[in-house]
Amino acid sequence: MGDTDPDEPRESLESMWSSLLGFADRYAELGYGPLAAKLRAGGPPPPRVQHTPVIVDTDIGGDPDDAVALTCAARTLPELALVLTTDENGGGRARFARHLLDLHGRHDVPVVAGADLGNTRYYVVDGLTPDDVPAQPTDVLDAVRTVCASTDRHVRWVGMGPLTNLSAVLREAPELVDRLVVTQMGGAINYRDPARAEHNFRLDPDAARAVVATAADLLLVLSDVTFTEQIAISTESDTYRLLAAEGAPEWARLLRTHLDRWFTAFYPSSMQHDPLALATALQLPFVDFTRRRIALAPDARMSLDPEGHFAWVTTQADYPAFRSWLTEQLAY
């Protein structure tokens, strides 16, 4: 091993990938051709984005996993810079997000009410937001531009609902395409109901198709990985008991009430799709992903397609490690 200079700048992963690909190409005739092909097919590694601003785009107010994810972000991410709501319900989702952030002392994080798709079914937080919480602003593009202007680095976009807001930003501000590193909960290669697309994609198929075709750095946290009782919260889970414990803080009591309403109205558990998407966006080590070419049908059903668009997609997760992480984020 040769001498090293501790003051020499560390080579980036992107640079190392490029150097290795160049080496494999130069010596392809010596047997490195397959390595070059694999490197080129896999593409460069995702950019390093630790400590860069975070935008959360959420349909909070339905399945409580959004509220749990926003709680994790509010409590542990000083980089949380903006919360957008999508699939709005008359501004109620944005007001609820504002209330939850305020309970965590995150008055510094603006909330903007985004696209309203006219859906009202998955909304269980009626009456949980105090009347004195005002309606939130509605200019999504201006808010996103403000975050991007605050840094010369990438900005992390964590999508937890339909892709309507993101599609509009990429369409109306193409200069931001290369600035946003997108992690989106949504899509499925082997969806449990093959007759339709995954929930977040099917609520706005055109937006999903536009994002897959346009986003420069896109990582999809697929339902194939997130739809499992191994990461569900129910009344029997330790996480629920923590939130329901005597003396729990107000934010925990709010989450517990939100969960109870969901259990009564829809399902006896809440799979934590969106906290897992947040963990993936934070590049935590218990989520694996790979680069694939994907295509979306007109209704946004997803398939692998050698002529499709490149995207990173999740392949598996260490569920016990994720559950431990989630419990740590919610401890008080």
Rank of each mutant, 00 (worst) to 15 (best):
V221H: 02
R179V: 04
L243C: 02
T235F: 09
A149M: 02
V177C: 11
C148E: 02
A188S: 15
S150K: 06
S234K: 00
M185A: 15
L219S: 15
V182T: 13
L176S: 08
Y122L: 12
L128I: 07
P174H: 03
P130S: 11
L170P: 04
R145T: 14
T214I: 08
I233D: 06
T183C: 12
G186P: 13
D206P: 00
A135Y: 14
E246D: 14
H199L: 15
A245L: 03
Y122P: 00
T164V: 04
D132N: 15
S167D: 14
D139S: 07
G127M: 02
E229W: 13
I231F: 07
L254V: 11
P249Y: 01
A232I: 12
R241M: 06
R192D: 13
A244V: 02
Q230W: 09
W157T: 10
L243I: 09
A197I: 07
P194M: 10
L242G: 03
W157A: 10
R153T: 15
P137D: 06
V182M: 12
D132L: 10
T226H: 06
T214A: 11
E250I: 00
N190K: 07
V140A: 06
E250Y: 00
T257K: 01
T228S: 13
S234E: 04
E175I: 00
L163F: 10
T138F: 01
G127V: 05
S234T: 13
L219M: 13
H258T: 14
T146L: 10
D260I: 00
V125G: 09
G187Y: 03
A208S: 15
H154A: 14
R261K: 13
L222H: 05
E175Y: 00
T235C: 02
P249D: 06
G127Q: 04
V125L: 01
L222K: 09
Q230G: 15
T228N: 01
N200R: 10
V133E: 04
G159C: 11
R153L: 09
E175L: 00
P137M: 04
D217N: 13
M160S: 12
T239H: 02
L218A: 09
A244D: 12
V182Y: 07
V155F: 07
L242I: 04
D139F: 10
A232F: 12
T264V: 14
T151Y: 10
L176W: 02
A143F: 02
S167K: 06
F201S: 14
V221P: 00
P130D: 12
T226V: 11
R192N: 08
A168L: 12
P134N: 09
G161S: 15
N190E: 14
A197F: 02
S237H: 11
L220S: 08
S150G: 15
R241N: 06
P134D: 04
F227S: 13
Q184T: 03
E229N: 13
T146Q: 14
L242N: 00
R256W: 07
D193N: 15
P137W: 04
Y122T: 10
T239R: 08
T146G: 03
D142R: 14
R145I: 11
L219G: 03
P249E: 05
P194L: 11
L222G: 06
L222N: 10
W157M: 05
A149Y: 01
R196F: 00
R153P: 00
D152P: 00
W262T: 13
R253Q: 15
